[in-house]
Amino acid sequence: MYQNNQRGAALRYSNKMELLIIDNLRKGFKKHKVRAVDDVSFSVFKGEVLGLVGESGCGKSTLAKLVLRLLGADKGSIFYKGKDLFNISHNDMRKTRKDLQIIFQDPYASLDPRMKIGKVIEEVYDIYKNVSENNRKSKTIELLETVGLGETYLNRLPSELSGGERQRVGIARALATDPEFIICDEPVSSLDISVQAQILNLLIELQKRKNLTYLFISHDLGVIGSICDRVMVMQSGKLIESGSCENVFKNPQHQYTKTLLESALLR
């Protein structure tokens, strides 16, 4: 059974460019007696921006952490480029981690409060030893410039930065491993409206330039509609609808999706 899945997933990657295949993923929290993620299956194709919408608490962030194996799943499997991430050696997983990154919602919680910005980025190079020690500083500056910051930020602490600037640092950290796939977990929803557009533009520009694949999580349908190719709708742990943005927005099948769309239009 497992062998077949593995081979099937490898084929699906090489034939249809299914970069990531999520199969029947489930995660429950015993304390709350709920299934935060309830038998979720979907694929992410290489180079696309896949949206995930749903109200807060519906399990979007848990799903994000499961996909990157930051949390353990109760059941199910994840294939990345045909490799089963739940049946992989410690060493291979370390190498695979490079390809899969995440940008968090709250830029105030996603940076170590005691770590200078330069060190946040350099730490990645320190872990992978992919950049020689002499080049680390210049690579760090280069990366900070890519996200619209610069050398002056090297020795600053997160507490000295604004929310937008911190989110840029978070993006730079995710880019430092040179990933293929990035989960953007509500990357703009805790930022000011004016800053939201800047960060979104940066994310879109990076996606195009580096041919990245995004799983873009948001509760804001406007944001999803403007940047995503396909969209999935999640409600209390289950995926209830998915399809191209156009189809889902114009012709929603599920009652919950209709409600979501209506409430978005009212604003």
């Binding site: 930051l70 981690r97 490079k98 995440i102 968090f104 919680a109 409060p113 730490e123 950290r173 430092a176």
Partner: peptide, 13 residues
Amino acid sequence: RDFIYAEKAIGAS
């Protein structure tokens, strides 16, 4: 906290 998840994501031991 998210910054610890971020550390795991970048492959920190």
